[in-house]
Design a binder for these strands. Structure first.
Lengths: 135, 135
DNA sequence: ATTTAAATTGTTATAATATAACACTATGTA
DNA sequence: TACATAGTGTTATATTATAACAATTTAAAT
């Protein structure tokens, strides 16, 4: 019998919602997701939020807290949503997941004055993306 | 005539709401603020949200995005809410503003691959505070 | 002092985001 | 099989936030 870590098998609702978010070029909001999956039989907000909660928990998607929106994880090393960093353009709202070894190392090792050690963080950078900067 | 930067004079509503948040030992949510200031004549959500927006804009308070809650700024160098970092206990929900010169320097200088330079960031660390860790 | 622009206020209504509660079903494992 | 755990479907409701508009206050500039 194998002792490998089991890859998380998504349930039907989770898969439908993950696929939608994963295909989206921008973060999606819960009720926009709901609207888009109603034809597939997902009719109620709770069905969406439950799937989102699980997908966040297992690290397949991340929540952009300042925007109440969800984005698929494109950081392959990111098994659990414990260390996330994003850049957000304040004009076009483009959101990109940052994967910088230096940054994650720095933050993972950061200790505050009380010596409190953190198990998780979320960082959101705001600025102007290249396109919006030149306009 | 003086050329000093003008201290932002708060309006009545802004002052009432700032005082409340400033006295609170924990972050306050908008509708809890509303409930607490109704006896002072602030009756509607919009009055609260408008004051909150302004207070955030001028850096007197910060929004804890993951909690939809507001906390007074205790970082005296923080004139504008452009660079914020918090620690959040996942059990007792205690929130503390982190003021670490090293951290803010590191983040202020962080550039991503595209060379995008950020004008603002918000960082939320999650973990267990001292009290909750020993329980 | 008077005018003007900008910011703030008060108000009603409504939009957008998220969870409670409960009965039922599927799945994995002992 | 039986038991526990996780997921589903559903209705109702709670929580967070903004739209729109008229009135008022404030700051500053004539």
């Amino acid at each position: 019998m194998k002792t490998m870590h089991k890859e998380h098998t998504l349930t039907k609702n989770q898969q439908i919602i993950f696929d939608l978010i994963d295909k989206s070029p921008e973060p999606m909001k819960a009720y926009s997701i709901l609207f888009n999956v109603q034809k597939k039989g997902i009719k109620a907000p709770l069905q969406v939020y439950r799937a989102l909660d699980k997908l966040v928990e297992i690290g397949k998607i991340h929540k952009i807290e300042s925007r109440n929106a969800f984005i698929a994880c494109h950081n392959s090393s990111c098994r659990v949503a414990k260390a996330t960093a994003f850049s957000i353009c304040e004009i076009c709202e483009k959101v990109t997941e940052i994967s910088s070894a230096g940054l994650s190392k720095y933050l993972a090792n950061f200790k505050d004055k009380d010596g409190m050690k953190y198990i998780k963080y979320n960082l959101e950078f705001f600025g102007l993306c290249k396109k919006c900067k030149v306009k």
